[in-house]
Each structure stands twice: as C-alpha cells, then as structure tokens.
Design a protein around this nucleic acid. Structure first.
Lengths: 326, 326
DNA sequence: ATGAAAGCGCTAACAG
DNA sequence: CTGTTAGCGCTTTCAT
C-alpha cells in the first residue's frame, strides 16, 4: 500500500495524498474526504520510514538502559508513555554489561534517532563522550558523571541522601553504615557523600559496604552477613530500594528486627517501597518529571545543560519509632 | 555521513562501501579494510532507515503493552533483551485504556514493522482481527481470546490455576474464593475456570470476587474488605501476583494472618513473589521462553498457530503449613 | 572484484 | 488548490 495506490483510487495525484496526511489544511475539504476514504478502504498508513528518509528525521527516540531492575523498568515505562504522547516512537535497548553499551549504541544509531537517552550510572564517561556525535541529540539520564560532556538530567542524589541521613539523625541514630551498589557508580558516590556529610557533622562515622550490584540478592547477602556478625548499627542507609528490600529480608531472616533493631532507608521510590509489606522510607525520584525534562533537553542542544531535580523524602515503617538511645 | 562520503575518502565507489557493510564477503580484503577504516574515521554507520526503505524490511519489532504493572514491565524487558540479540530493534508502545490501542497500533504501523506483538488480555477480539493485516506479522501474547484470529503464545492459564488449586486442596483447604482482576479478561476467565473445576470436583464452591484492575491497590481493598466483613475462607486464589500482594497486605493490616488464617496464591511469578517479604506461592510464567516463541512465530505466519506454554508452580510462605481443618 | 544506475515511498519546492 | 518533479541513502542487479 503506497500513496500511489490511494491516489489512483481517489483520482488525484500522489502528492495530494501525501498532503492530506502531512498538511491537511492545504487540501480542499472535498478532496480531503475523498482521499481519506480511499486510504481507509485500502488500509493505507503513510510510511514513517520513507518520510523519515526524506525529512532526515526518523521520529524515533532511543533509550539505552540496564536490562534489569525495578527502577529501570519504571524509567522505560515513563519514556514509553511520554514519547508515545507525541507522534514519536520509543526504541528500547537494554544491556547487561557496560561493555555491551558501545555495541548497543552503534546498532541503535543506525536508525538515525531524533534523540538518544543514555541511562545508567555505570556507563563510562569515555563512552559518553565518544557518543556525543553531531547527528543525534544525546541526553544522559541519572548519570552525574556525564556532566559537561552531555546534557544531563538527574535527581539530586547528594541532597536526597542528605535528607535521608538527617531524618535518621533526628530519630536519634548514633551509629550507621552505608550499603552501596557498585562503588564506581557516580550515583552511588554522590549518595554516599550526601549521607556521610550529615553523619560526619554529628561525629558519626559512616562505613561504606559494597553490595556488588543493585539487586535484591546482593542486598540479602549483606543483610544476612550483618545479622550473623552481629554488629548492627542503629541505621543502614542503602543506595537503592531494591538492595534495601534484600537487606531487610536478610536481616529479618536472622531475627533482626527492622525498624526495631535497625532502621533502614532506600533510594528511588519504586512502587513496592510504598507497599505495606515493606513500607520503606526512601527518597522518591519524580521519574515522570525527569523524563519530561529529558524530552525537552533533546530539542535543545546545550552540552553543558544540567537539570537537577529534587526527590521527595517519603517516611514509612522502616524508620518508625525512636531508637533505644533516643 | 553517508556511504558517499566514505566512498570518496576510501577512493572507491559508493556501492563498494554499501557492500562492505551488507555483504562483506564480496569485497576484496584490502578494499574492505580501507573502507572500514574510512568509515570508522568518519564515524559512519549505515542508515537503517534508508536500508529499510530499499529492502521493505525495517528491522523493527513492535510491542503494544499496558502502561502499568510489574508483570508487563518484565515482559518488555524480555522483549528488549531478545530482540536486541538479533540485529533488530524494539519499538515499545504502551497504553492505558483499551480504547487507546487502536490509535497506538496505527501510529506504530507507520514504521512498517517486521513484526507486531499485541499483549494484554483486555484488548478486544474485534481489534485484533482488524489488525491482522497483510503487511506485518502479528502475534498475540497472553491473550487467549485471540486464538484463531492471530498466532498466539500464551501460558497455560487454566492448567496453571488448576495446579494452584490442587496444591491448596492437598493442604486441606475446605473453602476458598477467587479474586480476579477484570472479569472480561480472557486470562482471568481461564484462571478462574482452572481453579473452579478443581474445587468443584471436591464440592467446594469458589465465589468470584472482582478487584477491578490488576493492581496492588485493587487487591488491598479486597483484602481489607474481606478482613472487615470477617468471613474469610481457608484460601484465596488470586488472579495475579500484584493483586495478591495487595490482598495480603490488606488482610494483614486488619490482623488476618497469611498463611495462618488464610492461604493466598498468586499468578505470574513476578520477581518480588520470590522475595521473602512476601514469599508468594504462585504460578511462574516462563517469560523468556514465551518471548522466544513469539519471535519464532513472527517469522512464520500461520494464523491458527497456538503455542501454550506450561508455567511452574512455585510454593512459598503464603501457603505453608496445614489448615486448621487439615 | 568493482562501478553505474535504478528505485524503494515519501515530502516539499515549484509551476500552474 | 493541485500536479510535476527531484531527491533522501541505501541495496541490488547488471555490466565491466
């Protein structure tokens, strides 16, 4: 089905058919109706491939995100929703290893994307700079290390962690530890920094414990370990909700009460954190708002643009009640 | 950057450049290296848009899925992973209302997809048939109602629910109820049927309770309601994990013990069901395998193809222990 | 083994 | 308001 088929059926030229779909106002109503009907009868829909070729705009927005994790799935959802609201479409590429990102970008770039969103704090800075190419607009998502190399939209990691830490301090916490995902991730570093500054100001040290990945299982091991060793601080500041769920279950499995024996906080605000089963105190990322910012930045092209969005402290069961010291 | 630019730099014709990328074996090694180097220096990547136009194959696979729900997010992830492993790309379109599906399909069809996957049991049969068009291959995912209209890949809903029911019966359950999501959904109906047959064979009636949506909140209300009314059966067979989490929290909030007072089962096997915080007995859908089947069916084109995949009964905390009758 | 040339379906400038 | 025309960048015969 091409516009020629429709043209023949409607008894007009091909370009009139094209106009009916691209700029209907330029076509007389009678003609327009005739063409529309012919198109409907033939089941014709203009080809975005051909149009994209002609226009040098594919109408495609790509996102490159980690293959796993509740948080990233929410991010994909948000992009799908918001990109779909325009007349554009979303190309999703996931990757397991950071090494695979390079290849993923290459194959996705073949589609001459109108915009490319790079997510994941574990993508290296070198990779980002190699990708800030003329053709497509690139925006980094939650990847503080990209600052200055590509336009960036990120939640306020440091400020968010600081808010969580202050909340714990107000609760009377006298000792704490930080459970990170991957220490080389820039989000991890900023969250740690945000927390350590607050605790430091109260002369409370904040050891860094690395889970190894941003997963439930990694968190579970940390929780179980802490419980077995037995030296449990008053609070655990965990770098991500998903790790925190694991930490909590690992602790509880070994008889440690949360929040009774130890208060736990997360980061991200994934849907389950609000479920009563965990009721996790966390820093909620306003994902929809962040995604909206990304889509705006895509139209601009200022490399040094940085949009930092404040998250929202959401207090729940895992930090309820006073500490024994309190 | 076009193949002409590369050709000029490498001192060959444009068609040689194209060959190097499309069918490298047909080009002498020396030439090939020269071209590859030129391409790399210029940062040239062949345009899939132009290629798709010429070949009438976009290399794009589209999925249309509901905008929300843990389960669907896992499905998107699986598609992204598996489609990406080929040299194809994934176009994701989400929708909130079933009414929006029609429009979503239209705009996605403009990309001349090599394959289109329709997911969600709430898409109407009429819509599906209107979409089984010549151009692109359509496969229905977990949408039993599509049987005969489009090739279909689905988990064995009825068999899975039956397995859950038998498990509960073996536990000595004497009364039960079914909590569905949306009664018009074909998956809901089959799951109910699978359970009701098993209970019926033991002379146990199985009232159907409709939550109204496949969400945690809808489940929570049901759970809270049941607890308040106080007539709690020995077991609740819930149509989806996410609803089940809500049911459990709603019950527990009002002092009802799970599995002490009532055993609860889910369906889907989303990641959190395996987390100890809930430890939900459920029917695990082998999503990766189902997605693989879909991608295979896309190449074929037998409308009456139906692939039914067995799920796996995973027993966990929410059905542990004997009933008081047992 | 390489080059020349046609054409995929569309848009937009231009002519009428 | 509508028709004619020239490409967009690539793949693929068909020659050489």
């Amino acid at each position: 089905m091409t516009s020629f088929d429709v043209a023949k059926r409607a008894g007009v030229s091909q370009s009139t058919v094209a106009r009916v779909f691209a700029r209907p106002a330029l076509v007389a109503e009678a003609t327009r109706n005739r063409v529309s009907r012919a198109a409907r009868e033939l089941g014709y829909v203009p080809s975005a491939i051909a149009g994209g070729m002609r226009n040098q705009r594919s109408g495609l927005v790509g996102v490159v995100v980690p293959a796993q994790g509740e948080y990233w799935q929410s991010v994909i959802s948000a992009f799908a929703r918001q990109v779909g609201e325009g007349s554009r479409q979303l190309l999703v590429t996931t990757f397991r290893d950071v090494q695979a990102v390079e290849g993923a970008i290459q194959s996705i770039s073949r589609y001459r994307l109108d915009g490319l969103v790079l997510a994941s704090s574990t993508i290296g800075v070198g990779q980002i700079s190699r990708l800030t190419q003329p053709n497509h607009a690139v925006v980094a998502f939650n990847q503080p290390a990209a600052a200055g190399i590509a336009p960036l939209v990120t939640v306020d990691n440091q400020g968010g962690a600081a808010a969580l830490a202050r909340h714990l301090i107000e609760l009377g916490v006298k000792s704490a530890a930080f459970v990170g995902g991957v220490s080389s991730a820039s989000t991890d570093q900023l969250r740690y920094r945000g927390a350590v500054e607050q605790f430091g100001a109260r002369e409370i040290s904040l050891p860094y414990i690395e889970a190894g990945s941003f997963t439930y299982d990694a968190g579970y091991k940390i929780g179980a370990n802490l419980a077995e060793v037995g030296r449990i601080p008053d609070a655990l500041v965990v770098a991500a909700d998903e790790i925190a769920f694991g930490v909590i279950d690992g602790l509880r499995r070994h008889g440690v009460s949360v929040p009774g024996d130890v208060r736990v906080t997360g980061f991200d605000g994934v849907p389950q954190s609000a479920w009563e089963g965990y009721g996790l105190t966390t820093l909620v990322q306003p994902i929809e708002q962040m995604v909206a910012s990304v889509l705006q930045l895509l139209s601009l092209s200022a490399v040094d643009q940085i949009v930092t969005i404040e998250g929202e402290l959401r207090i729940a069961n895992t930090t309820r009640g006073e500490t024994s010291h309190g």
